[in-house]
Design a protein around this nucleic acid. Sequence first.
DNA 1: TCTGGGGTCCTAGGACCC
DNA 2: TCTGGGGTCCTAGGACCC
Length: 424
Amino acid sequence: MIVLADCNNFFCSCERVFQPQLRTIPVVVLSNNDGCVIARSNESKALGIKMGQPFYQVKDLLEKYRVAVFSSNYTLYGDMSRRVMSLLSTYAPKIDIYSIDEAFLDFAGMYVGEELCAYARNMVKEVSKGTGIPISLGIASTKTLAKAASKFAKKYKAYNGVCMIDNDEKREKALKLLDIFDVWGIGRQASKKLQYYGVRTAWDFTQKTQSWVRNILTITGERTWRELRGESCIETEELPHKKSICTSRSFPDSGLKELADVEEAVANFAAECSRKLRQQHTVCQSITIFAYTSRFRTDVAQDYIHQTITFPVATNNTQELVSVAVQTLRREWKRGEYLYKKAGVIVWNISPDDAIQGSLFDTIDRTKQTALSRAIDEINKKNGHNTIRVAVQGYNKNWHLKSEHISKQYTTNLNHIIEVVVKE
DNA sequence: TCTGGGGTCCTAGGACCC
DNA sequence: TCTGGGGTCCTAGGACCC
């Protein structure tokens, strides 16, 4: 059996751990720049606040119902995620961390039936006790069914956080209650197509023939169809390393106009990408630099910069990546009055750093560079992010994010640790 | 005025080969 | 007038996920 462990309203729950008075109050967490709502507590969901809704559209509503609003605090969420995952991993021989708040656990050959359920309910209890984060568990023979089960575990209180689909009768019942749009792997486009053919629930979908599904939704849809019928065919084997790494941000307010500001941002994105490459012991062969204006603004001129550069020798060197990124941006920069709202850097064609294909015409001493990078990483690890940086990364930060409602770094910063005052 | 960030996988179509 | 058949590789863009 496969178990999907899913943290309930994860970002909101993280905030609540350190401010328990919020447990009875609706909470939302905003995206970077305080742009959109990206996490909602159950109370906030009940108020009709939608996932991804722009903050300014619901500001009045949030004030009216005294909703607690937070800017996203990824340092906190990342650390809380590590805690939950490390606890979960003690319960199963194999864990696949699927996202910041979800993991698949393989329970093959462990318990079955009621015994498995009891074991799972204990996990829910222990994770809550150990981290303060409420989780739900979906148990079934395939990942897609486990995802479905976890939805029910969350939806109905009586399950106590654990829902198991372990026979055909339960499967039929569950799938008949599951809207096709809520199936993992079926998005907006696919469900629109399926609805057109009268498929409303996951069960309807499973009653279609394999060739029909293949024809309408291609191989990915067919895989989902097989999974829903109980045939396991989605592997989320933990990848040895990422295939692409992207660092990008939206700029606050109406955006950036000056090359110097965008340049500083892009330099920082490139530096961050190179750091992530080194962290997973890889190098990249290609880098893409992009910058564009706001697609929502019909009143201003639009521009779209998008340029890819291929390196003769794969690299993860900060100086090299930053230099290429900045030069590319300068080359593509148009002397217009464009307001750039978002920019980013993507590195791809990634391979392990211990098997780099050299070049006859290489002019860089790679051994020296690697040693330098290692030294810089060590210093920055000890003294804080970007203590040593490439000059063009700058200090102006005109591109910096808006985060007016951010909470403290309770678990990762000594100055932010909660003080407990005991009163007589 | 204000609208997130970071990924993976698949497909169609072009370029190229013999 | 009439212009093959079979293959690989790469890339951009779309769909999907959280």
